[in-house]
């Protein structure tokens, strides 16, 4: 059995795996992106505190 045929056969049996796998990839993207935004948000809060200014309410809640 050549490789092409093997791939086609595997795909025919396990195509549905592409859906949970796709969701997993989406979940990972969201997690990474959200984590980075939270890190940046904390950085901005730190800038405010370092300068002795009031932190705006909009920065106090989750933003993503």
């Amino acid at each position: 059995m050549d490789t092409r045929q093997l791939i086609l056969e595997l795909w025919a049996s396990y195509w549905w795996l592409s859906i949970p796998f796709g969701f997993m990839v989406l979940g990972i993207i969201r997690m990474v992106v959200r984590g980075d935004i939270e890190r940046k948000r904390l950085e901005v809060i730190k800038t405010y505190i370092d300068r002795g200014m009031d932190v705006p309410d909009a920065l106090k809640r989750e933003t993503f």
């Binding site: 990839v25 989406l26 993207i29 969201r30 992106v33 980075d36 935004i37 940046k40 948000r41 950085e43 901005v44 800038t47 405010y48 300068r51 200014m53 705006p56 920065l59 933003t63 993503f64």
Partner: peptide, 24 residues
């Protein structure tokens, strides 16, 4: 959905960057 995530990320990080500039 992936594009939406990236777009939102871009918008949020740009906003935070500007806020930081204001604070500085």
């Amino acid at each position: 959905a992936a594009f939406e995530s990236f777009g939102r990320y871009h918008q949020r990080s740009g906003t935070l960057k500007l806020l930081k500039t204001y604070a500085e």
